[in-house]
Computed example of a mutant assay.
Amino acid sequence: MLTATVLALGACPTAAQAFGEDADHPPAGPSGGASGDTLTAGVGTRVTVRQVSGPKGGSSAKPVAPVDPNWKPPACWYEPVATPEQLKASVESLKKGGDLVHVTPSLSWGEELMVNHYEKGETQSDGAEGYKNFNIGKKGKFWRGVMNPDVKDTIEARQCETNLFWQDADTVPDIENAPTPKILAEYAYNKVKVPKTEVELKPEGKSTVNLPTWVWLDKGEFEPVKVRAELPGTGIWAETTAKPVGLHLEPGTSDAETFPADGDCPADEDGGIGTPYTKGSAKEDPPCGIKYLRATGGQSYEMKASITWEITWEGTGRAGGRLPNGTFEGTQDVTVQEIQSINR
């Protein structure tokens, strides 16, 4: 039985390793706080995330913005955090007034609760049954709620605030906000970073009035990006994939025509968008491009190029589906000259 608590989150400055933590899967960020004899949820997570395929854009790569403004990632969920032995060691350290060795540095609790409820097995005032000697000898872990570190501290994020509770090995709690492949996929959404939106232009340098500027994407740079999220100790995983499916062009001036007319350039079957310019195509209408009708007069037009990324996911037990498409916008300066010729 879970015992919900609604308390302010705090941080303890000690740098000791958290219980249930290991070198390969440390919790990310702060993890919660306590008041009196109650233990609250944290905002850190043990979920690991890594990119498994696709181009890596380095510092220039950024998360996509969901097309649906109402879509939100999961605010909180539950995770395993400590074995019986780890919890007992934590409490023994706490009783001795130590430096909280084996106790998560930013998730603390009152000694009375930990001794009476988890060591002596006393039932709480709300009827929650206690745990005799920290469940030593049983297979499983104590779980806690965590807040998604990517979302603000909201009422929704505090829905997982609870005291530590027991879960048998190889099982997942059958409760609201229990971890699922979809929750991990949604968490990974914000971890999918796509390359900076910068399209290829021809002619390079300067465009010419009334002659089309061809626009296309470098297929090698704009390949699908796949990110994998896993929750250690549960067998739950998900892979979230972003695939470029379209490009929208805005010339930066009303004195221009786009190709196609609506400025939307769909992806080809092989994933490419637009067609590279070839010699002799200067006067042809490109599948994707812009024709400027007036020169810039020594300045530049600010062309906007927005790529739409289709987001899908798959996970444990052949689960899968779609998440809201994402967009990523970039701007490029385009100078347009008056002369009616182009280098071939």
Rank of each mutant, 00 (worst) to 15 (best):
L217Q: 04
A185C: 13
E198W: 01
T197M: 09
L217F: 09
V215D: 12
K202E: 06
K202A: 15
K219I: 05
P212M: 01
E198F: 01
S207T: 13
K202Q: 11
A229L: 13
K196A: 10
E200D: 13
P195Q: 10
P224I: 10
W216P: 13
Y187K: 07
W214P: 02
K193C: 11
P195R: 07
K193Q: 08
K202L: 05
E221V: 11
E221I: 11
K196S: 07
W214H: 07
K226Y: 08
F222K: 06
K206R: 07
V192Y: 06
L211Q: 08
G220Q: 02
K226V: 13
K226I: 10
K193P: 08
N190S: 06
T208Q: 15
V215E: 12
K196Q: 05
K226Q: 13
V192S: 05
T197F: 05
W214T: 03
L217Y: 09
S207Y: 08
T213Y: 03
V209M: 15
L201G: 04
N210V: 14
P195L: 00
K196V: 02
L217D: 06
E186A: 15
K191C: 04
V194F: 09
F222C: 09
Y189R: 06
D218T: 00
A188M: 00
P195V: 01
P203Q: 14
R228D: 13
L201C: 04
D218L: 02
Y189M: 07
P224A: 11
